[in-house]
Protein backbone atom coordinates (compact mmCIF):
# COMPACT_ATOMS: atom_id res chain seq x y z
CA UNK A 1 0.00 0.00 0.00
CA UNK A 2 2.80 2.36 0.90
CA UNK A 3 4.33 1.80 -2.51
CA UNK A 4 1.13 2.91 -4.16
CA UNK A 5 1.09 5.99 -1.97
CA UNK A 6 4.62 6.81 -3.06
CA UNK A 7 3.43 7.28 -6.62
CA UNK A 8 3.09 10.83 -7.85
CA UNK A 9 -0.32 12.36 -7.42
CA UNK A 10 -2.01 13.04 -10.72
CA UNK A 11 -2.53 16.73 -10.10
CA UNK A 12 -4.02 19.38 -12.30
CA UNK A 13 -1.60 21.05 -14.67
CA UNK A 14 -1.83 24.62 -15.93
CA UNK A 15 -3.46 25.17 -19.30
CA UNK A 16 -3.16 28.13 -21.67
CA UNK A 17 -5.82 28.46 -24.33
CA UNK A 18 -6.66 31.06 -26.96
CA UNK A 19 -10.10 32.61 -26.81
CA UNK A 20 -11.87 34.40 -29.60
CA UNK A 21 -15.24 35.96 -29.99
CA UNK A 22 -17.65 34.89 -32.70
CA UNK A 23 -20.28 37.42 -33.64
CA UNK A 24 -23.46 36.72 -35.49
CA UNK A 25 -25.12 37.84 -38.68
CA UNK A 26 -26.35 41.45 -38.88
CA UNK A 27 -29.58 40.16 -40.38
CA UNK A 28 -31.85 38.39 -37.98
CA UNK A 29 -35.16 36.72 -38.69
CA UNK A 30 -37.29 36.72 -35.57
CA UNK A 31 -40.84 35.57 -35.00
CA UNK A 32 -42.06 39.14 -34.77
CA UNK A 33 -40.15 40.39 -37.76
CA UNK A 34 -36.73 40.92 -39.20
CA UNK A 35 -33.83 42.92 -37.86
CA UNK A 36 -30.88 44.42 -39.61
CA UNK A 37 -28.17 45.52 -37.25
CA UNK A 38 -25.97 48.39 -38.37
CA UNK A 39 -24.20 48.38 -35.03
CA UNK A 40 -24.26 45.96 -32.10
CA UNK A 41 -21.56 46.34 -29.52
CA UNK A 42 -21.17 45.26 -25.92
CA UNK A 43 -18.43 46.17 -23.52
CA UNK A 44 -17.29 43.09 -21.63
CA UNK A 45 -14.52 42.25 -19.19
CA UNK A 46 -12.91 39.39 -17.30
CA UNK A 47 -14.08 36.07 -18.70
CA UNK A 48 -14.09 33.28 -16.14
CA UNK A 49 -14.75 29.57 -16.51
CA UNK A 50 -15.99 27.61 -13.55
CA UNK A 51 -16.38 24.00 -12.61
CA UNK A 52 -19.57 22.59 -11.19
CA UNK A 53 -19.94 23.38 -7.48
CA UNK A 54 -18.97 20.57 -5.14
CA UNK A 55 -19.51 22.02 -1.69
CA UNK A 56 -22.51 21.58 0.52
CA UNK A 57 -22.68 24.16 3.24
CA UNK A 58 -24.50 24.04 6.51
CA UNK A 59 -26.20 27.20 7.66
CA UNK A 60 -23.97 29.50 9.60
CA UNK A 61 -24.42 32.75 11.40
CA UNK A 62 -20.88 33.90 11.25
CA UNK A 63 -19.17 36.18 8.84
CA UNK A 64 -17.62 36.22 5.45
CA UNK A 65 -14.50 34.60 4.13
CA UNK A 66 -11.20 35.60 5.62
CA UNK A 67 -8.89 33.31 3.80
CA UNK A 68 -6.41 31.23 5.67
CA UNK A 69 -4.23 28.37 4.63
CA UNK A 70 -6.40 25.39 5.22
CA UNK A 71 -9.08 26.31 2.75
CA UNK A 72 -11.22 23.27 2.21
CA UNK A 73 -11.90 24.29 -1.35
CA UNK A 74 -9.71 26.04 -3.82
CA UNK A 75 -12.63 27.80 -5.45
CA UNK A 76 -14.56 26.92 -8.53
CA UNK A 77 -12.79 29.10 -11.07
CA UNK A 78 -11.09 26.80 -13.54
CA UNK A 79 -9.96 29.30 -16.15
CA UNK A 80 -9.72 33.02 -16.62
CA UNK A 81 -9.05 35.68 -19.19
CA UNK A 82 -8.65 39.10 -17.63
CA UNK A 83 -9.12 42.24 -19.70
CA UNK A 84 -11.81 44.37 -21.25
CA UNK A 85 -13.07 44.40 -24.77
CA UNK A 86 -15.79 45.96 -26.88
CA UNK A 87 -17.36 43.08 -28.71
CA UNK A 88 -18.77 43.70 -32.17
CA UNK A 89 -21.71 41.35 -31.97
CA UNK A 90 -22.16 41.31 -35.73
CA UNK A 91 -18.54 41.67 -36.78
CA UNK A 92 -15.91 39.19 -37.82
CA UNK A 93 -14.29 36.86 -35.28
CA UNK A 94 -11.99 38.65 -32.85
CA UNK A 95 -9.14 37.25 -30.82
CA UNK A 96 -9.60 38.13 -27.17
CA UNK A 97 -6.32 36.75 -25.93
CA UNK A 98 -4.98 33.69 -24.15
CA UNK A 99 -6.78 32.47 -21.09
CA UNK A 100 -5.00 30.62 -18.32
CA UNK A 101 -6.47 27.89 -16.26
CA UNK A 102 -6.12 24.50 -14.67
CA UNK A 103 -6.94 21.12 -16.09
CA UNK A 104 -10.42 19.82 -15.50
CA UNK A 105 -14.02 20.05 -16.49
CA UNK A 106 -15.68 23.38 -17.05
CA UNK A 107 -19.40 23.80 -16.50
CA UNK A 108 -20.21 27.47 -16.79
CA UNK A 109 -18.65 30.76 -17.68
CA UNK A 110 -19.23 34.33 -16.66
CA UNK A 111 -18.05 37.77 -17.58
CA UNK A 112 -18.80 41.36 -16.70
CA UNK A 113 -20.91 43.41 -19.11
CA UNK A 114 -20.89 47.17 -19.55
CA UNK A 115 -22.57 49.35 -22.17
CA UNK A 116 -24.69 47.79 -24.89
CA UNK A 117 -25.11 49.74 -28.12
CA UNK A 118 -27.63 48.67 -30.72
CA UNK A 119 -28.53 50.45 -33.95
CA UNK A 120 -30.42 49.16 -36.95
CA UNK A 121 -33.86 48.60 -38.39
CA UNK A 122 -36.71 46.41 -37.33
CA UNK A 123 -39.12 45.33 -40.01
CA UNK A 124 -42.46 43.86 -39.08
CA UNK A 125 -46.06 43.80 -40.18
CA UNK A 126 -46.37 47.45 -39.22
CA UNK A 127 -43.47 48.41 -41.41
CA UNK A 128 -39.87 49.33 -40.70
CA UNK A 129 -38.77 51.15 -37.60
CA UNK A 130 -35.19 52.27 -37.03
CA UNK A 131 -33.76 51.84 -33.59
CA UNK A 132 -30.78 53.36 -31.83
CA UNK A 133 -30.25 52.66 -28.19
CA UNK A 134 -27.59 52.55 -25.53
CA UNK A 135 -28.18 50.47 -22.40
CA UNK A 136 -25.98 50.36 -19.34
CA UNK A 137 -25.87 46.68 -18.48
CA UNK A 138 -23.34 46.93 -15.65
CA UNK A 139 -23.76 43.46 -14.29
CA UNK A 140 -22.13 40.11 -14.70
CA UNK A 141 -23.48 37.64 -17.20
CA UNK A 142 -23.35 34.30 -15.45
CA UNK A 143 -24.25 30.71 -16.14
CA UNK A 144 -23.04 30.71 -19.73
CA UNK A 145 -23.03 27.16 -21.02
CA UNK A 146 -19.44 25.94 -21.19
CA UNK A 147 -19.28 22.19 -21.33
CA UNK A 148 -15.75 21.13 -22.13
CA UNK A 149 -12.58 19.97 -20.46
CA UNK A 150 -9.27 21.70 -20.15
CA UNK A 151 -6.37 19.40 -20.92
CA UNK A 152 -2.78 20.58 -20.70
CA UNK A 153 -1.66 18.06 -23.30
CA UNK A 154 -4.26 19.21 -25.79
CA UNK A 155 -5.19 22.74 -24.80
CA UNK A 156 -8.42 23.76 -26.48
CA UNK A 157 -9.16 26.83 -28.51
CA UNK A 158 -12.22 28.49 -27.09
CA UNK A 159 -14.90 30.43 -28.79
CA UNK A 160 -17.30 32.79 -27.09
CA UNK A 161 -20.45 33.17 -29.14
CA UNK A 162 -23.28 35.64 -28.83
CA UNK A 163 -26.71 34.48 -29.95
CA UNK A 164 -28.01 37.91 -30.86
CA UNK A 165 -31.24 36.59 -32.30
CA UNK A 166 -32.04 34.99 -28.97
CA UNK A 167 -31.02 38.09 -27.04
CA UNK A 168 -33.21 40.40 -29.11
CA UNK A 169 -36.08 37.94 -29.32
CA UNK A 170 -37.47 39.26 -26.05
CA UNK A 171 -37.88 42.80 -27.30
CA UNK A 172 -41.33 44.17 -28.18
CA UNK A 173 -40.25 46.35 -31.08
CA UNK A 174 -43.72 47.67 -31.75
CA UNK A 175 -44.00 49.39 -28.39
CA UNK A 176 -42.74 52.78 -29.45
CA UNK A 177 -43.70 56.31 -28.58
CA UNK A 178 -44.41 57.12 -32.16
CA UNK A 179 -41.49 59.46 -32.79
CA UNK A 180 -40.30 57.27 -35.60
CA UNK A 181 -37.27 55.82 -33.86
CA UNK A 182 -37.02 53.24 -31.14
CA UNK A 183 -34.80 54.25 -28.23
CA UNK A 184 -34.13 52.92 -24.75
CA UNK A 185 -36.94 55.11 -23.46
CA UNK A 186 -39.56 53.31 -25.53
CA UNK A 187 -41.83 50.93 -23.68
CA UNK A 188 -40.13 48.00 -22.13
CA UNK A 189 -37.35 47.95 -24.67
CA UNK A 190 -34.59 48.77 -22.24
CA UNK A 191 -35.66 46.08 -19.83
CA UNK A 192 -36.26 43.42 -22.42
CA UNK A 193 -33.01 44.16 -24.21
CA UNK A 194 -31.23 43.99 -20.86
CA UNK A 195 -32.94 40.75 -20.04
CA UNK A 196 -32.08 39.28 -23.39
CA UNK A 197 -28.44 40.26 -23.48
CA UNK A 198 -27.83 39.03 -19.93
CA UNK A 199 -29.68 35.78 -20.47
CA UNK A 200 -27.27 32.90 -19.99
CA UNK A 201 -28.67 31.21 -23.09
CA UNK A 202 -27.73 34.17 -25.27
CA UNK A 203 -24.11 33.13 -24.96
CA UNK A 204 -22.02 30.03 -25.38
CA UNK A 205 -18.41 29.36 -24.58
CA UNK A 206 -17.32 26.29 -26.46
CA UNK A 207 -14.31 24.40 -27.54
CA UNK A 208 -13.64 25.00 -31.21
CA UNK A 209 -13.64 21.98 -33.43
CA UNK A 210 -10.13 20.90 -34.41
Amino acid sequence: MILSLLACIDARAPVAMPVRFEGGSPDLQLEAGAIHLDRAELEVADLRMESAPVARWLPSLVGTATAHPGHEFAGSVRGELLGSWTLDLVGPPTDLGTAEGWEGDVATASFDAGTLVLAGTWTGPEGSIPFDLEVEVDRPIVGVESLFSLDADEPPSLSLSAHVDHALGFVEWAETDGDGIVTAADGTLRNTALFGITSSTSWTLAQESP
Binding site: G63, A65, H68, H71, E72
Partner: peptide
Amino acid sequence: VFDHAAARFLTT
Protein backbone atom coordinates in the same frame (compact mmCIF):
# COMPACT_ATOMS: atom_id res chain seq x y z
CA VAL B 1 -15.28 20.64 9.55
CA PHE B 2 -15.44 24.14 10.84
CA ASP B 3 -13.71 25.92 8.03
CA HIS B 4 -12.44 29.03 9.67
CA ALA B 5 -11.35 30.25 6.29
CA ALA B 6 -14.95 30.63 5.33
CA ALA B 7 -16.18 30.65 8.93
CA ARG B 8 -18.74 27.99 8.26
CA PHE B 9 -19.48 24.46 9.30
CA LEU B 10 -18.87 22.14 6.47
CA THR B 11 -20.13 18.60 6.21
CA THR B 12 -17.95 16.71 3.85
